[in-house]
């Protein structure tokens, strides 16, 4: 069925329906993307994650126009990516952590000149944008040093400036913090959020770094085996989809380990009892009642499991409950 525009709602930045991509391989056909559908409203920050081989790169290539799907429809900024690739390229920015848009022998400003030319910016607009980005990214003092002399964190700020030069409406980021130290990662994440909040740029982020997802994304789309297996916010990802909670009990005296279905002991000392509770089998209330009745409790807290653990379990299961 063809794509039918909805004239009553504002056009989403990204709208993909039933995307399929098959590649010919030696053993037959491989379906890298399998009836994938995703919609991203303009101005949203989305983490697009999945294990290696899940179809992330293939679907991003389709959404940026450099790969044509075998079947399905997509509109990015109202354009069909693979048909209007160059027009779309003028309106999106891409930052791949392992590929540089800057030439190492030149200063960032000299590389910006080349990119500005390719993107059709005149000199006046180029100068204005470079000044704005220098201020926005706190990187103006880096623009006149040869890129090869910059640290990785400094270079990534210049790379970000390079992909923002033409004021893209959507930013596709693939592992933007890979290889950066902790401070540089934090700074880049803050910049992405700041950029989204001040300029309204839609952020479409792929990363294996859970902290990138936690600090940047408002929404998480998880894909596996070429299809979306979760689409929601971080809280929902933790709360609803993995019915697992962690209960930490500070003990005033040694206690007996509770014997309840779906409760496993992660750590047990004379002063600490850490439990993982499968809430599909035992409610948190039942666990708390059990512990409070039988133990001398000094402190108790109920926590969501760490995000990396949540994601790892989703990947392992290939889906959510």
């Amino acid at each position: 069925m063809g794509w039918v525009p909805d004239h009553t709602a504002p056009a989403p930045a990204i709208e993909a329906t039933g995307l399929v991509k098959r590649f010919h391989a030696r053993g037959g056909e491989v379906e890298a993307v399998s009836r994938l559908s995703v919609t991203v409203p303009a101005g949203e920050r989305v983490a697009y994650i999945g294990p290696n081989g899940a179809g992330k790169s293939t679907s991003i290539k389709i959404l940026t126009g450099i790969l044509r799907p075998t079947a399905g429809d997509a509109r990015v900024l109202g354009l069909v990516p693979w048909r209007d690739r160059r027009r779309l390229a003028a309106r999106i920015g891409t930052l791949f952590g392992q590929r540089s848009a800057l030439w190492p022998e030149l200063t960032a400003r000299q590389s910006f000149r080349m990119l500005a030319g390719v993107y059709g910016l005149d000199r006046r607009r180029e100068d204005r944008r470079v000044a704005e980005l220098g201020e926005l990214l706190g990187a103006a003092d880096l623009f006149d040093d040869p890129v090869r002399g910059l640290s990785l964190g400094q270079r990534m700020r210049c790379e970000l400036a390079a992909c923002l030069l033409h004021e893209p409406e959507i930013l596709f980021l693939d592992e933007p913090t890979i290889g950066l130290d902790l401070l540089a990662k934090t700074r880049l994440r803050e910049l992405l959020v700041h950029l989204n909040e001040t300029c309204g740029t839609t952020v479409f982020l792929t990363s294996h770094d859970v902290a990138d997802i936690e600090h940047v994304a408002q929404r998480v789309v998880v894909i596996n085996a070429g299809r979306v297996i979760f689409d929601g916010d971080l809280t929902a990802l933790r709360r609803d989809l993995l019915a697992v909670k962690r209960v930490e009990v500070g003990l005033e005296s040694p206690a007996v380990v509770p014997d309840l279905p779906g409760v496993t002991v992660e750590e047990h000392t004379d002063t600490l009892l850490r439990l993982e509770v499968d809430t599909a089998r035992t409610t948190i209330r039942a666990v708390l009642d059990h512990v409070l009745d039988r133990c001398a409790v000094g402190d108790i807290s109920v926590l969501d499991p760490p995000l990396d653990q949540v994601i790892a379990q989703i990947y392992t299961r290939g889906g959510v409950r």
Binding site: G65, I66, R85, A89, A90, T94, V118, Y119, G120
Partner: peptide, 9 residues
């Protein structure tokens, strides 16, 4: 392929 992400041939 990465160069194809630019609005020029």
């Amino acid at each position: 392929t990465v160069e194809m992400l630019r609005p020029a041939a």
